[in-house]
Design a protein around this nucleic acid. Sequence first.
DNA 1: ATCAACCAATTGCAAATAACAACTGGTTTT
DNA 2: AAAACCAGTTGTTATTTGCAATTGGTTGAT
Lengths: 170, 170
Amino acid sequence: MRETGRSGCPINLTLEILGDRWSLIVLRDVMFGNRRHFRELLSKSDEGIASNILADRLKRLVGNGLLSRRDDASHKQKAIYSLTEMGIALVPVFAAMGEWGRRSLPVTEELSIRAEFLSEGGPALWERFMEELRFLHLDAPKPERSVLDELTQAYREALARRQAALAASA
Amino acid sequence: MRETGRSGCPINLTLEILGDRWSLIVLRDVMFGNRRHFRELLSKSDEGIASNILADRLKRLVGNGLLSRRDDASHKQKAIYSLTEMGIALVPVFAAMGEWGRRSLPVTEELSIRAEFLSEGGPALWERFMEELRFLHLDAPKPERSVLDELTQAYREALARRQAALAASA
DNA sequence: ATCAACCAATTGCAAATAACAACTGGTTTT
DNA sequence: AAAACCAGTTGTTATTTGCAATTGGTTGAT
């Protein structure tokens, strides 16, 4: 929990909070993977985050107002992490970063489907997604259509296409 | 120059390259401040980057293809750093991060003028800005209007307004 | 020709952070 | 009662950061 205060520039302040290798990974998994418990974030992590790093990042993200933490009523030891409005507001940042990574870096085809879908959907889709996140994490009403489902659907279709292509070439 | 390869996710790969406290600061200064030399980046830095960190980040950014480095013909020791197309493609990421920081964090009013201008201009303005960056850093033709000038203008106007307000209240 | 100022870094060192593995004290399920 | 699960913590080592001083060279003014 550093308190440097290097400058009041928006980019700098954003980096002071999110400028490390793990914070956005954790938020990504909460946001796109709907992982809400410590163990889910720990064991289903594609990147293999260490438990102490995860604990530290969750603490920081809660401290900085991007996540909130509450006890799980159904299980005395479980904690549930939820996105705050501030966390939900990162959707356009993820969209921009995902699109840049997708076009500039050696991404895995399957894993970039979501980024592509999000980028092509544009601000209208992002807003729908944010509405859905407000439903899942805050107290907003349930939207008719689920962007998360559409993302999963797109992912599955891409995977199936890939399998079909592989089978055809074999 | 780490070679982890944690996963092929676009967000993860982006973080492996840009996920630290300084890389985007350096790129921001090259992009928005048109700082092209080591000394310019070092001494005009609002955040006070250390020379060894700057040297390391420049090396990495060149290695990862976000910047290019060439000798300055007018001065044997000077090196000129330029954005590559990959670096220029970060404009929407800066716009999204700047907008998020501006709305969510305790930014300085003056320093958030550029972020506001960029955000309000939307994709059309970003594209114009990228054209200008291609002129300044690559070999593209000079655009009629300069977004950088408009950003500076907006900044100056905001500053003047602020001074006026301060004077009126005194 | 000399000297001060400038150039892009590098070096050495202390402190902070990250990664890895094992463990803690407790709860829930079987 | 035992096994599995829960959110972390602890201890250790490796890496990265931040700071100050320095390097080997170039440039511009006198």
